[in-house]
């Protein structure tokens, strides 16, 4: 199929994931700065319309706090998906939608707590794992079908109407076979199986990292393999690149160094995934609540004797650790 000059690389470059959702580090940082500034302006607007709240009593969240909170809630999506027994494709797409949404909007504009639910619901539909809104909402406390569906359009628009998400799971599975093919008896099925399982777990971490914006799914898959078992992965790559006669689509050995340096870089990005503690997230979450609804400050002053009970979220682990967003 590559005979007419259209390679899988070419096809990937035509995907919306590459065209609209891949960034250099500088672009990504710039994008996040702009979103944070947009969020701050939104808070200022709200303060203007609530003159009874003094501006000094509201603390805006920083860009780094936004990143931390988003990664915390991205992990919540993973837990929620598990709670609903959703396939990994749905879970990964839900996380992808959620994180893309916050490359366009600030947590000070939309509280992540609600957005994450709608992202997962939308991902389930987009990945053909239909669940009715009633059975979805029924099992998540303090939600209604309307509160979830009401945000679908907002999210679809922020996603620039692109729903296709290519995840590293399939390439990982492909490499699992190709490693056997290339290394043959040099690797036991049992050993490779456990490496594969560990790498697959690591992909869940990669989905929350910035690797998805800088690298292609196969690069991420290889980076996960290499993190889990460097020796095996290098042995595979070495043989793959020196063994030119295996298939004609094997890249030239000059590309070997580039590939190794790219996946090594990718490993580092995955390692750097922010993983804030629950306490940190709760703290940022509180700030966000006041940013989203400044008049809560007045309520807080009135109710100083009452403990904040919003963290009591029974049953669903995924939505615990944050406060309620209802005004």
């Amino acid at each position: 199929m590559a005979s007419h000059g259209v390679s899988f690389d070419d096809l990937y470059r035509r995907s919306t994931q590459y065209r609209l959702w891949s960034y250099t580090r500088e672009q990504l940082a710039q994008q996040r700065r702009e979103v944070n500034e947009k969020g701050c302006r939104k808070v200022d607007e709200r303060l203007t319309s609530t003159p009874e709240v003094s501006a000094s009593s509201i603390e805006k969240v920083t860009m780094d706090e936004e990143i931390a909170l988003i990664s915390f809630h991205a992990r919540s999506i993973a837990k929620l998906a598990k709670f609903f027994n959703m396939p990994s494709q749905v879970r990964a797409t839900g996380i992808s939608f959620f994180r893309k949404f916050y490359l366009v909007n600030s947590v000070m504009e939309y509280h992540p707590k609600l957005i994450l639910l709608t992202c997962l619901f939308l991902a389930a539909k987009s990945e053909n794992f239909f669940i009715s809104i009633n059975s979805f909402s029924k099992r998540i406390p303090k939600t209604t079908p309307e509160s979830i569906l009401g945000l679908e359009f907002e999210i679809l628009q922020s996603l620039k109407f692109t729903l296709m998400a290519h995840h590293p799971f399939r390439p990982l599975y492909g490499f699992f076979y190709d490693i056997q093919n290339v290394l043959g008896p040099e690797v036991s099925t049992k050993e490779l199986g456990s490496v594969y399982d560990a790498a697959r777990n690591l992909i869940n971490e990669a989905l929350i990292s910035d690797a998805i914006y800088h690298f292609t799914p196969p690069q991420i898959a290889l980076a996960c393999f290499k993190t889990v078992n460097e020796e095996l992965t290098m042995k595979y790559l070495n043989k793959k690149f020196t063994n030119v006669k295996v298939e004609d689509d094997v890249p030239k050995s000059t590309d070997y160094d580039t590939l190794v340096s790219v996946i090594t870089e990718c490993q580092q990005v995955i390692k750097d995934t922010p993983n804030p503690t629950k306490d940190q997230a709760v703290m940022i979450d509180k700030k966000v609540q006041f940013c989203v609804n400044p008049s809560l400050v007045l309520k807080r002053k009135r109710d100083t004797n009452e403990p904040d009970d919003a963290n009591k979220r029974p049953r669903v682990g995924a939505v615990e650790g944050g406060a309620s967003t209802s005004p």
């Binding site: 035509r14 919306t16 539909k125 987009s126 239909f130 679908e152 692109t162 729903l163 296709m164």
Partner: peptide, 24 residues
């Protein structure tokens, strides 16, 4: 018309958008 599908955005509309965005 989105209002008529009780589960929000219609699945076939979502599919159409999803795939046509990729297939130029």
């Amino acid at each position: 018309k989105t209002g008529q599908f009780k589960d929000g955005l219609d699945m076939s509309a979502l599919r159409e958008v999803k795939y046509l965005q990729e297939l130029k």
